[in-house]
Measured scan of single mutants.
Amino acid sequence: MQIFVKTLTGKTITLEVEPSDTIENVKAKIQDKEGIPPDQQRLIFAGKQLEDGRTLSDYNIQKESTSHLVLR
């Protein structure tokens, strides 16, 4: 499924993911596309910070959901 990640600069990154993917996996995909190390990434969805060990389905992130990327 596709999800979108919006950066603070207003850029939207499109990612191909599975509901069973962990947040860690998603951060690795963002690193592949954008070159941002996962330890600098914070992903926010529905006002919550997403934890590495959880999956997209844990957070009820469905296709075409948009989460926000904040850099630390």
Rank of each mutant, 00 (worst) to 15 (best):
residue 34 E to M: 15
residue 27 K to A: 01
residue 11 K to L: 09
residue 32 D to Q: 14
residue 50 L to V: 04
residue 68 H to S: 09
residue 43 L to P: 01
residue 11 K to Y: 12
residue 69 L to T: 02
residue 34 E to H: 07
residue 41 Q to T: 05
residue 20 S to E: 10
residue 6 K to P: 01
residue 61 I to L: 06
residue 14 T to W: 08
residue 48 K to H: 11
residue 50 L to R: 00
residue 45 F to W: 10
residue 63 K to F: 11
residue 2 Q to K: 13
residue 25 N to H: 12
residue 41 Q to G: 03
residue 44 I to Q: 07
residue 23 I to S: 01
residue 42 R to T: 15
residue 13 I to W: 05
residue 22 T to K: 08
residue 59 Y to F: 04
residue 67 S to F: 15
residue 64 E to Q: 10
residue 20 S to I: 06
residue 47 G to F: 04
residue 54 R to N: 10
residue 53 G to M: 09
residue 50 L to C: 05
residue 10 G to K: 03
residue 5 V to G: 01
residue 47 G to R: 03
residue 46 A to F: 09
residue 41 Q to E: 01
residue 15 L to S: 00
residue 24 E to L: 14
residue 33 K to S: 10
residue 36 I to R: 02
residue 27 K to V: 02
residue 13 I to H: 03
residue 51 E to D: 09
residue 39 D to E: 13
residue 18 E to L: 15
residue 62 Q to A: 10
residue 33 K to Y: 08
residue 55 T to W: 03
residue 11 K to F: 08
residue 29 K to Y: 07
residue 45 F to Q: 03
residue 44 I to L: 12
residue 34 E to T: 15
residue 45 F to E: 01
residue 24 E to R: 14
residue 40 Q to H: 10
residue 31 Q to C: 11
residue 35 G to Q: 05
residue 51 E to M: 10
residue 37 P to D: 07
residue 66 T to G: 10
residue 47 G to I: 02
residue 14 T to E: 09
residue 4 F to A: 06
residue 2 Q to R: 13
residue 61 I to K: 01
residue 62 Q to W: 11
residue 64 E to L: 12
residue 27 K to R: 05
residue 58 D to V: 03
residue 58 D to E: 10
residue 29 K to M: 13
residue 68 H to T: 13
residue 3 I to A: 01
residue 36 I to T: 07
residue 37 P to F: 05
residue 32 D to A: 14
residue 27 K to L: 05
residue 58 D to S: 12
residue 69 L to A: 02
residue 52 D to H: 06
residue 14 T to K: 08
residue 7 T to I: 12
residue 70 V to I: 14
residue 20 S to L: 09
residue 17 V to P: 00
residue 42 R to D: 11
residue 17 V to I: 05
residue 10 G to P: 02
residue 56 L to A: 01
residue 1 M to Q: 04
residue 65 S to D: 09
residue 28 A to G: 09
residue 52 D to A: 07
residue 13 I to V: 05
residue 2 Q to P: 06
residue 45 F to K: 03
residue 23 I to H: 00
residue 55 T to V: 06
residue 23 I to E: 00
residue 54 R to W: 10
residue 26 V to A: 02
residue 19 P to S: 09
residue 35 G to A: 05
residue 51 E to K: 08
residue 66 T to K: 10
residue 50 L to F: 02
residue 28 A to M: 14
residue 20 S to C: 09
residue 17 V to N: 00
residue 55 T to N: 05
residue 2 Q to F: 13
residue 10 G to W: 04
residue 72 R to S: 13
residue 71 L to G: 05
residue 55 T to G: 02
residue 16 E to M: 13
residue 43 L to I: 08
residue 54 R to D: 05
residue 52 D to W: 03
residue 33 K to R: 10
residue 64 E to F: 14
residue 62 Q to G: 15
residue 4 F to T: 08
residue 39 D to Y: 12
residue 65 S to K: 07
residue 35 G to M: 04
residue 23 I to G: 01
residue 27 K to C: 02
residue 69 L to N: 02
residue 56 L to T: 01
residue 11 K to M: 09
residue 11 K to G: 08
residue 17 V to D: 00
residue 70 V to N: 05
residue 46 A to W: 09
residue 60 N to M: 06
residue 3 I to T: 01
residue 37 P to I: 05
residue 31 Q to K: 09
residue 30 I to T: 01
residue 55 T to D: 03
residue 16 E to L: 13
residue 45 F to T: 02
residue 27 K to T: 01
residue 53 G to I: 06
residue 10 G to E: 04
residue 16 E to N: 12
